[in-house]
Simulated scan of single mutants.
Amino acid sequence: MTIPQDATTQPAAEQRDGRGPLRTAVIVNPNRVEGLDELRAGITDQLAEAGWPEPAWLETTAEDPGTGQAEQAVEDGAAVVFVAGGDGTVRACIDGLAGTQTALAILPGGTGNLLATNLGVPTDTIEGVQLALDRGRRVVDLGEVEGKTFAVMAGMGLDAAMVDDAPTKLKAVLGPVAYVFSALKHLNDAEMKVEVQVDDYPVLRRRARTVIVGNVGRLQGGVNLLPDAEPDNGQMDVAVLAPRNLGHWIQTAFGVLRPGRHKVPNMEVLRGSRITVTSDRPQPRQLDGDVIDESTTLDITVRPDALWVCVYQPDTSEDLTEGSTEED
């Protein structure tokens, strides 16, 4: 099949809204994904069978984990950017895609893959590519901290310390279980005194172990910490966790895991579009599993409708004739 020349030179939004082939790029983390030659051949062949042009192939580096590559793909006119790697690679690419019309297509390849999990994106590469071919799209919000974006969760305190201390080799062997071992090391860390300001509501002052701000709710292992969080409502849910001893942690864990829960012991949940967490001393912080510099402040602004993501095509198989009557 001959690809019309103008089909691959249109702006991303026009390509997306049209019916022809789309220009694409693949950003891959070579340290997280095995079998790069097979991956490249498989994606290229699957796109070619659908009549789409060969994708640009961009690899991340230690100096640039994905942001520059995503910006280059957008500049070159890609309507879809496939990202093969873990949560860190996805987050770095989101920095380059935020606010553009280019859609993110996740090809999970790391430990957590939390954005993919929360949006129902399959872990199989063939199915992941098919999502882009089927043109299912969803626009989601992003959080922004000091010029960096996140799509899943930001954390301050024990949450970030746990992420920071989970060894890469252990995560490769044990997966999400590695975070359990890391968390156990920090259960007895000193509490932090925090002030949490959400929009124009009164300041919440608490002694807390961690504060987590979620655009979506599911953690590693499928644990649904924030079941009411929605990635496209213009707000984020804020969990302030304040267990003081092992018994409290057990109560909180059972509360989170309990089906149909209404309230979790030792945890308060707020919601808003501008969140500022201030601690009495510098704390570790993380964005989608990427640890950033320690600070006394985690200042988050929600950017509504900031990222297009390839997801399953909405079901349009409903009977459209329901309720109608045949003419005599």
Rank of each mutant, 00 (worst) to 15 (best):
E144L: 11
T252M: 13
V121A: 11
G175Y: 00
T316M: 07
P231T: 02
L107E: 09
G99N: 06
V90L: 08
A306E: 13
P282L: 03
P314H: 02
D319C: 02
N215L: 00
P11S: 00
F181W: 14
V196H: 08
D87E: 04
N113Q: 13
A132G: 13
P53L: 00
T149M: 00
L36K: 08
L241E: 15
W249L: 10
R23T: 04
A56D: 14
T89H: 12
A73H: 08
P265L: 03
G109D: 09
L104F: 11
L241V: 14
L158Q: 09
D315C: 15
V74T: 06
E327L: 14
T2M: 06
L287M: 08
W52F: 14
A253L: 09
A132I: 02
S324Y: 14
E195D: 11
A7F: 05
A161T: 01
V302P: 02
V33S: 10
T2C: 01
L225F: 06
G147A: 10
P167W: 07
K193A: 10
R261L: 10
D328M: 03
L22N: 05
Q15C: 08
D37C: 04
S273G: 04
V277Y: 00
V240W: 05
G247Q: 11
L97N: 07
D315H: 13
E63P: 04
P21N: 04
A183D: 04
R281Q: 13
A50H: 00
R244G: 11
V145L: 14
L204W: 02
P227N: 09
